[in-house]
Amino acid sequence: MTARPTALIADDEPLLREHLQSHLARLWPELDVIGHARNGREAVEMFERDQPQIVFLDVHMPGMSGIDAARAIARRAITVFVTAYEQYAVQAFDQGAIDYLVKPFESARLADTVERLKQRLAEAQAGGTPVAEPDGDTADRIEAVLDRLSTQLRHQASGKPWLQWIKASVGNAVRLIPVDQVAYLRSDEKYTLVVWEGGEALIRKPIRELVDELDPEVFAQVHRSVIVNLRHVAQVVRGANETADVQLKGRSETLPVSRSYLHLFRQM
Rank of each mutant, 00 (worst) to 15 (best):
W196M: 06
E217Y: 06
D112F: 00
E123L: 10
L24I: 00
T129M: 10
R26A: 08
T138I: 12
E213W: 09
S158E: 09
T254I: 03
L153E: 03
F105I: 01
A201V: 04
V44Q: 11
W162L: 07
I166D: 08
W162K: 10
R186M: 14
G63Q: 07
G159I: 03
R204N: 10
A126P: 06
S225L: 03
E86K: 13
L149C: 05
H60S: 15
Q51F: 11
V80I: 13
R175I: 05
D245S: 13
T113I: 02
E197I: 08
R259E: 09
A25E: 13
T79K: 14
E209R: 15
G128F: 11
A25L: 03
A10C: 06
T243Q: 10
L262R: 09
A111I: 00
E123Y: 05
A25M: 06
V44Y: 13
L16P: 00
H155T: 01
G239C: 04
V246Y: 04
E30Y: 05
D68H: 13
Q247R: 15
D135S: 07
L210E: 04
G40A: 09
E48C: 06
R208M: 08
T138A: 14
E242K: 15
K249D: 05
K103W: 01
K249C: 03
V145C: 02
A89I: 03
R175K: 15
T138Q: 14
L16G: 02
E242F: 08
Q119G: 14
V131I: 11
P29I: 05
V44C: 09
L27K: 01
E18V: 03
Q156T: 09
T129N: 08
I67Y: 09
G136K: 09
I98E: 06
Q221M: 08
K118R: 15
L202E: 06
A69N: 10
R186S: 15
R49W: 05
M46Y: 02
L110P: 00
Q53G: 10
P216Q: 02
